[in-house]
Write a protein that binds this DNA or RNA. Sequence first.
DNA 1: CGTAGTATTGAGGTGAGTCAACTGCTGTGG
DNA 2: CCACAGCAGTTGACTCACCTCAATACTACG
Lengths: 232, 232
Amino acid sequence: MAHVHQHESIEQELECVSQVPIFQRLAADQLTSVAQVTRPVLAKKGRTVFSTGEVSQTLYIVNVGQVRLYHLTEDGHEQVLRVLNPGDFIGEIALFTDEIHSSYAEATQDSELCTISRASLTDLITGMPQLSMALLNALADRLKTAERQATLLAIPDALPRLAGYLQEISGRQAGVIDLPMSKQDLAAYLGMTPESLSRKLRQLVKDGVIETIGRRQVKVLDSAALATVAPD
Amino acid sequence: MAHVHQHESIEQELECVSQVPIFQRLAADQLTSVAQVTRPVLAKKGRTVFSTGEVSQTLYIVNVGQVRLYHLTEDGHEQVLRVLNPGDFIGEIALFTDEIHSSYAEATQDSELCTISRASLTDLITGMPQLSMALLNALADRLKTAERQATLLAIPDALPRLAGYLQEISGRQAGVIDLPMSKQDLAAYLGMTPESLSRKLRQLVKDGVIETIGRRQVKVLDSAALATVAPD
DNA sequence: CGTAGTATTGAGGTGAGTCAACTGCTGTGG
DNA sequence: CCACAGCAGTTGACTCACCTCAATACTACG
């Protein structure tokens, strides 16, 4: 740890840190402080970043690529918790609650992550109230999403469940939306089988509510009709 | 607002504040600072504390009683998000994300709450790193619970969903557990109908896994058998 | 161009929702 | 203190939407 090329590594870490929304509002010298306790991690496509049971006291921030977070049930069925795109982070639960990971994290593309240890982050927070506000904001945001997902999943019928999801990621407006994950992952995320998802999507297409573009895009044609199908 | 009985009201608010886990680790003078920006609210059983659409920049902490948080879907179906017992708090999402409430809060018993405005809390956090750590902890904890709920709800079959829930609140050990809410609320929370819940509970009783004691208690007899039925 | 993984489509069985009737707490007022 | 009202919870019969299993089409990648 002694004779590292401090200048160069800080450059790289600054790039990572400055990309991340949580750190966006910090002043230049504060960013440098954050970058100094940051360590970059590379994960090739398909690699596991961490798995269940590991005691991790590290915050992972995705800089480049995509990481998929999922639970593995006894019968081998994967439940996707969420998908992290650049700027998103994981590990905050382990960070603040002294618990082992209960999920797996896997890179779905070649990815670059930054890591910050629990101790470093605690120190940073103590000295930077803005940082704690940003973290609280981010956590509150995540919480809102998780509660929305829970509300969606409690709906017994698959069609309104899907419609509610589409409505949410489309921002309730017509237009093209990118699906953040594969359809089989999406199906797991929405608590249904890929078959059901396929059928329900088809039904929405037939009804003129949406159009599917390739594998990872959906075009919302009639957001009003979507709202009718969706709950709330 | 001018000639309030400052001493008396601070007494009352201190009691509220000191009961709350988030503030537990603060020193006496810090507690007083918190109490000074706190305002108590009383809610009779059945009263709505706040409802959808209200712009609230207030943190509500339950001191006495119980508050039920729920979404209301278009068809009148209630989805219970969670139930707040003394020490729990709500409003943090509105607090940190500039958004209107998307849920209703209703007192299920005569309740006492403390409120803190957004501006006051921001000020407090700036001056007290410990407080922000405590808040981050609490939010991370909530997030974990919400993600667990989402994972549970994604399970298509009702029995493992219920078993998973029982396993969680029992701490994976045999013994008597108190249900934190009524069975119809629990059914909504678990994404099933009260009828299904009743039937699945009955099945677990028949199989010798649990015993029901009155309306609000369940005794886990065979935690190993429960684990077999539950996912993960 | 071929192969492996991803997505779709079809047919059939079943678990859970719906509707309705009934039971048994619980708390309230006479 | 008891009786009754009202609601929480249970039970039963029926229906249907979704899961399962299996075969086929498509698409990305070597």
